[in-house]
Write a protein that binds this DNA or RNA. Structure first.
Lengths: 230, 230
DNA sequence: GACGCAGATATGTACAGACAATTAAACGCG
DNA sequence: CGCGTTTAATTGTCTGTACATATCTGCGTC
């Protein structure tokens, strides 16, 4: 148990005041010099604490105007979409991936120009089908994917391990299972499915576009948001 | 156009190197003293830039070992769940809220002990039903809610404006519409619905528990993730 | 009263130095 | 060669100081 840094302590104490409602939105909180005197430290130390709070969106800072507690606008929550293989393993279930189809072809999709590798497969948790996945991968951006054994490793897992960093956009919706999808997921046609579509870029160039269909009875997405998200 | 701060410029340049793949995961990036010499500035300035990157999760820093580019593990995306009223208004649609039922009672829900205000209603976008909402609000945490006119203002909107800050957990799943739900949303029974359940706390005390049912054909959730999330 | 300018005030950013904490790597010893 | 110890590299944090920058406040002028 090492003592937490002073700036961290200050940050926490102010955060607690805000979260508990002691300083409601709109409150002007003490200036840096005042806090500096209160804690008996240098201004940089206080500044670090306040900057962190501003970064987390709990306060707004303006020169001369001071630091005021921000009004919450939206519940912005952090949704961690881990790779399915990792997520299932983390829950202590047996993960399997079955590749149904893969082919390199020219893309007709406006969001994924050029040649792409197209894959289709099913993710299994404890031997029960969890998600049916359709994916396009830009071979221009990730030529190495052609050498990967995608029957062994799911393309999402491979990409996570080999493509350095990404930007992504996710769309979540629901639909009734088509006969083909119902067959793949071993559910009845018309059963509700959760559909997650994710487009991923790397430095503004599209890398992959994936649509995952989950049997709603077997899966749900969970996200947690804490104001202390740093 | 004021010149960006030097520490910000350094942060950006390193970030660009990482995002472009120039410094793949696992790369050890130059130490603080080296960067300090390169940019001709103080160590504090470099430290600020690197700390920001560490906070964003792009790099991992360890004493003696140095700063290394992190391996992406999960796609952690920021999902902004704005209040429905705001979201619909932002899309340029007409928003309406119709309160169907509200009653104060003792809660039997294990997650929301004590007396609660229970509300049910429907959110409309351009006069078409968008979401059916069931909600429990702790009257111990938010006694003022009893005086609010919830036929006029949706409870979510009221809470966003009056409760300072929150932690929340969201669950997203899908289900087929029950006859009652189908009637409220003006869809056919059995049609797929997107279900969002959100529990909200304020300083560890539960504030509200809400379940929103969306007609999947009329709504989808969109979330965007940039590696530069600060 | 309306307008504009000057000054006060608060934050933004940076510098230079210092010491602490951690831990990888080199070293020494059996 | 294996293992414990020392060394040194690297980041973590803080202290003061300094100047820049934005903007609120109040005063003076017309």
């Amino acid at each position: 148990m090492t003592a937490p840094a002073l700036s961290e302590r200050i940050r926490r104490e102010i955060e607690a005041k805000i979260l508990s409602g002691g300083w409601p939105p709109g409150t002007k909180i003490p200036g840096e010099v005042a806090l500096m005197a209160q804690y008996g430290c240098a201004r940089m130390t206080v500044n670090k604490a306040l900057s962190a709070l501003a970064g987390a969106g709990l306060v707004t800072r303006k020169r001369r105007a001071g630091t005021i507690v921000a009004h919450p606008r939206a519940q912005s929550m952090v949704l961690e979409i881990t790779d399915l293989a990792g997520e299932i393993a983390a829950r202590g279930q047996v993960y399997e991936w079955r590749l149904l189809r893969h082919a390199e072809r020219r893309s007709d999709h406006p969001e994924m120009p050029g040649t792409v590798l197209e894959t289709e497969g099913v993710h299994y948790a404890d031997h029960a089908p969890l998600a049916f996945e359709q994916r396009l991968i830009s071979t221009a951006q990730v030529p190495e994917i052609l050498a990967a054994d995608l029957a062994q490793t799911a393309p999402g897992t491979w990409l996570l391990a080999h493509v350095p960093w990404t930007e992504a956009e996710n769309r979540i919706t629901a639909a009734a299972a088509s006969p083909a999808l119902a067959h793949a997921l071993e559910i009845a046609p018309g059963d509700p499915c959760l559909i997650v579509t994710r487009r991923t870029w790397r430095a503004a160039a599209p890398v992959t576009l994936v649509t995952q269909h989950f049997a709603a009875t077997r899966h749900e997405l969970v996200a947690r948001f804490g104001a202390t998200n740093r």
